[in-house]
């Protein structure tokens, strides 16, 4: 288990009238190398939860284990944990500060105290990973477009080559094309490096397409943690807590309601096509799809 949470609870502004429990007794284990999609409403505790994973916030109670190590135990260097667990915040482009793109991406690796060649290699490979052209590296990041800035910021964390990469809504505020590009780059990063990736998102569609496992959060608690088919068979419960399942899953649920004997754990269009084909073949109809 790369990540293990034990009875984790976090309360904001304890002792004031604004007190609020953001994470409520969460137990969770995440296996190394998984691409996990984290989904939930605004205020369901997703962002608070992920900030615990690299020790940015200290839990009110409970324990966080990274790679089997209790990160708040005495003598643990939190800085090392932060290089192990890279965290990309929401709207990460607002954290950019250097004169050039190259320097900004190298901020993380430099803090790790790596040699100049090592830093250079990491910066270039991270930039390539997010599709930033070499010619952009010497430009000022403030001259870039919003989407490019975001990629610079993501590259800045990827360049630390963390074992776990966490991204908090990396596609927020991007156009459909930009979303697609960033999501597939994250997927590619996951496939290439074999690292664990946690992707926080609002969109069930995105999560369903890319994640190997889905963590649904509701009101600070883990609603469920399972692979996509497992999660989407509970579509009705998910709807009940106010989250929607992917459009395509809705179609299949409606089909079943209308009396077709069909599976409902369908969550991608490709898989839907296959399911329909199988269904029709079973019924003995001609298929020309």
């Amino acid at each position: 288990m790369i990540i293990k949470l034990e009875d984790l609870t976090y309360t904001y502004s304890q002792g004031t009238p604004f007190e609020k429990t953001a994470v409520d007794h969460v137990d969770l284990e995440i296996e190394e190398g998984t691409l996990v999609g984290i989904i939930g409403h605004t205020g369901s505790g997703k962002s608070t939860l992920i900030q615990h994973l690299n020790g940015l916030i200290k839990p009110t109670s409970g324990k966080v284990y990274i790679d089997g190590e209790d990160i708040h135990a005495k003598g643990v260097d939190l800085k090392k944990i932060r290089f192990k667990v890279g965290l990309v915040f929401q709207y990460p482009e607002y954290q950019i500060f250097e004169e050039t793109v190259y320097k900004d991406i190298s901020f993380g690796p430099r803090n790790m105290g790596l040699s100049e060649e090592d830093v250079d290699r990491r910066v270039r490979s991270a930039a390539a990973m997010v599709g930033l052209d070499d010619s952009l590296l010497d430009k000022s990041p403030f001259e870039l477009s919003g989407g490019q800035k975001r990629r610079v910021a993501i590259a800045g964390v990827m360049a630390m080559e963390p074992k776990v990469l966490i991204l908090d809504e990396p596609t927020a505020g991007l156009d459909p094309k930009g979303r697609e590009v960033i999501l597939s780059q994250i997927k590619e990063y996951h496939d290439k490096t074999g690292s664990t990736v946690l992707l926080v998102s609002h969109s069930m569609e995105d999560v369903a397409r890319f994640a190997e496992k889905i963590l649904v959060m509701n009101k600070g608690k883990v609603f469920c943690y399972d692979d996509p088919p497992g999660v989407f068979t509970r579509a009705e419960e998910i709807n009940a807590v106010g989250l929607s399942v992917p459009q395509i899953t809705k179609v299949f649920i409606e089909l079943k309601k209308r009396g077709l004997d069909i599976r409902t754990d369908v969550y991608t269009v490709d898989f839907a096509l296959k399911t329909i084909k199988e269904y029709l073949e079973e019924k003995g109809g001609a298929v020309n799809a």
Binding site: L56, R82, F89, Y94, M160
Partner: peptide
């Protein structure tokens, strides 16, 4: 809030 957020983000990149 913004300062807090930026501090967290830079800390996440190993800033001391």
């Amino acid at each position: 809030e913004e300062t807090d957020k930026i501090m967290q983000a830079q800390k996440a990149r190993g800033a001391e």
